[in-house]
Design a protein around this nucleic acid. Structure first.
Lengths: 153, 153
DNA sequence: TTCTTCATGTCAGGACTTTGACATGAGAGA
DNA sequence: TCTCTCATGTCAAAGTCCTGACATGAAGAA
């Protein structure tokens, strides 16, 4: 017992399940699980949905840009984008106009799929938002951003 | 354009990157990335570290209990736990005393590994906490919990 | 005693995610 | 012109994570 290094917890807590990291993981996992279940009926996975949303908002994003926008590596996004392409939901030119970036776009089918799916995702987020006192929402979002920035630089 | 279903966003936002889901994902991904990098030097992955922490706190948890504590399925935890066992960081009896649950324990090596690793994780969490106004921390954690509960029931 | 239900452990397969690696295109500087 | 740097795309391998499936042990009810 005396040999064990005493490490101060990140903030006052009885155990690890009270730590900010644990609770952040918990809510993120809850969101992920709920989205998985809801999007499944629309034939979409969460990463695919995220990709479609980003493309809807900014048509022509490259694989690397999509990866950055979805907080994954470009290798991961390559796999997701390939799957979407194979499913006919997105399209990309075979070669780049200049450089190496291939601008991706939603197909009509992709757009239709996204439109059908987004309402279930928004409903889930709605439930999260409704669980938080309205006056605290902006601060909560700002705190999340600050924590992310503190780690990302 | 007129054919598109108008769906109300979960809360006022210009685009999807302002949604609570997106920002939660962002901070969770930042935490995951930071932990991945830091724990790597200790020869541990994030899921392994989480498992060790839970076992340190509650020796004898079963695979299914660990899975619930780490917010993953028991199949996923089985893989993690197997890896830890193979690495000599945890141990489990080959058969259960009663029922099916196999109580897992940290080995001395596992405990030492955990002790070495936990300081880097706590330092990361410390950075997150320090980025948030001190007076807001409790509310932030409570809100995270509320959102999780709203989805988990 | 038998059946049902619930929980556990584990195997299988597929999607996602990371790191490492390689190749390529463009721009800037020497 | 050549070299270096940066960014992109893609392949490979290993770990993570999920769902589906099967087997098993225990408890409770009929």
């Amino acid at each position: 017992m005396e040999d064990r290094k005493a490490v101060d917890p990140p903030h006052p807590a009885q155990d690890v399940t009270e730590h900010v990291g644990y609770r952040l993981k918990r809510s993120a996992a809850a969101l992920r699980g709920a989205m998985d279940r809801a999007l499944r009926e629309h034939g979409l996975t969460v990463p695919q949905y995220a990709c479609l949303e980003l493309l809807d908002e900014r048509p022509g994003l490259s694989n690397a840009e999509l990866a950055r926008g979805a907080f994954v590596t470009r290798q991961s996004m390559n796999v997701v984008l390939r799957g979407l392409q194979d499913a006919g939901l997105t399209s990309r030119p075979a070669a780049a106009d200049r450089g190496r970036a291939l601008p991706a776009h939603l197909t009509a089918e992709g757009r239709a799929r996204l439109d059908a799916a987004r309402s279930v995702v928004y409903a889930i987020e709605r439930r999260m938002v409704d669980a938080v006192p309205q006056r605290r929402l902006a601060a909560l979002l700002a705190d999340l951003d600050r924590m992310a920035e503190a780690l990302d630089g």
